[in-house]
Design a binder for these strands. Structure first.
Lengths: 243, 243
DNA sequence: TAAAATAGTGTACATTAAACACTATTTTAG
DNA sequence: CTAAAATAGTGTTTAATGTACACTATTTTA
């Protein structure tokens, strides 16, 4: 929906008898212990100069999820990631050019992943910390972002989604940090250790990482649990704002 | 998506450069203590004679939810109901005529509501108990139904959605019955009484209903809780199959 | 060598869940 | 008329889980 060639002057609504369908992908990552989201800056009317969720039209021969993965790869060079459908936004006036229906997806990427090539400042693509988003957000994308964050929070509590943001080896306190970032609240260290270990999701390794204090043990996420690639892990009770 | 005029012979894919967008509404109700879903029988190719989730194309001047409500009203004559977006289905081959993207909604209606006019056997519209659906289900609608039921189950646990299926006055054991129908498992009477009362969602009335045994007290759903029209009520723990 | 920094464990108390036995009030069968 | 059946509703006990927080452990830094 961001790459029509028309302007306010050339736009002609009567050409369209069907809505356009786009896929927008809200891409999250963790940069320097903070949750960030990827936005692209618009170069044309409408919302010129504003920041938008990356997305584009679907091709006739690809599924919605395929379209979302293609978008993601175009923007970040990353493939094979956690991705889920968020919601479909279809209010009438959300794009001034024409009727646009956007199927929104959420994706989680590791910032340290191989090719993550965006985010040099010269480009029109940038990572924003979710605690300090720009105010210049195009279309209804602010609403989509808010909903994406809320969904992320609620799914965090009963899925293994947090692991998607971590490298292969990580410490338990790093994992706790991700939970805190996304939930935006402090968790108890002792209780976190206990719960995460009882859940049986982690595999101890012999690797340690040294830092300023006592070195920390590194763990790996167990993938071999008889095929359920994403079984339930409930960190805490419902918070009521579940998506 | 059910009302194109073409057949296999007349269909010409090249006319279409954009996907069609439909809204499909999975309508649930409780009939004689059993959960039912509304399906319509197709009269034309493809899937002639098969049963489908009611739905249709969106108009250019209505939002997705407005389209869903219009569909619902056309099928059942009912307005102003609980309705929520389920998922958007957009695989390439799901409709043999053309590329169709369906935004699916869930609706809950009270069977005893004013006009609920469908379901005379002569018509091509029928309520099916979810425990005994027909096997002749069109398109990918079986998958949509399965997903709708799964979503219904999981949301039941943390929303007040069950009340949508009850008349204004109801007994606590009737409410329990709805939970049992949707969750497909027995609940403990004593624990249900305790939890539902502690939740503070219900308002006692002076009305009683007489039956075969001891008469039962009738309750009303409290609507006045400072604006949150659908705040959280968690009946029990996560079951892992949450939508 | 002590303090600071980080990692990790243990324990006690409160809250909630689960099972199930019990009491209460009506209709129905004899 | 009375006992049984049917339905409604309460209470109690135990187990499981959540929460708070104190404690120990191991490293670097001053």
């Amino acid at each position: 929906m961001e790459d029509h060639e028309e302007t306010a002057a050339t736009y002609d609504a009567s050409r369209y008898d069907r809505p356009s369908v786009t896929v927008d992908v809200v891409i999250f990552t963790l940069i320097e212990r903070e949750l960030h989201v990827l936005l692209v800056q618009r170069k044309r009317w409408p919302y010129e100069g504003f920041w938008a969720i990356p997305g584009g039209f679907i091709n006739m021969d690809e599924s919605l999820e395929q379209a979302a993965r293609r978008e993601l790869e175009e923007e970040t060079g990353v493939r094979d990631l956690y991705m889920e459908q968020l919601f479909t936004f279809g209010d009438v006036g959300r794009d001034p050019r024409t009727r646009v229906i956007s199927v929104a997806y959420i994706a989680l990427v590791r910032f340290d992943a191989q090719h993550l090539r965006v985010s040099d400042e010269s480009h029109d693509v940038r990572w924003f910390p979710i605690s300090a988003l720009t105010r210049d957000i195009a279309f209804d994308h602010e609403q989509i972002l808010a909903y994406a964050i809320s969904r992320l929070r609620s799914k965090l509590e009963y899925t293994t989604l947090a692991f998607q943001l971590l490298p292969e080896l990580f410490s338990i306190l790093e994992l706790k940090h991700i939970y805190e970032q996304i939930l935006d609240e402090k968790l108890d260290k002792g209780n976190f250790y206990r719960k995460i270990k009882e859940a049986g999701l982690l595999e101890e390794t012999t690797h340690m990482r040294e830092g300023r204090g006592r070195p920390t043990r590194l763990w790996r996420f167990k993938r071999d649990r008889a095929g359920d690639k994403q079984f339930v892990f409930r960190w805490r009770e419902d918070r009521g704002d579940r998506a």
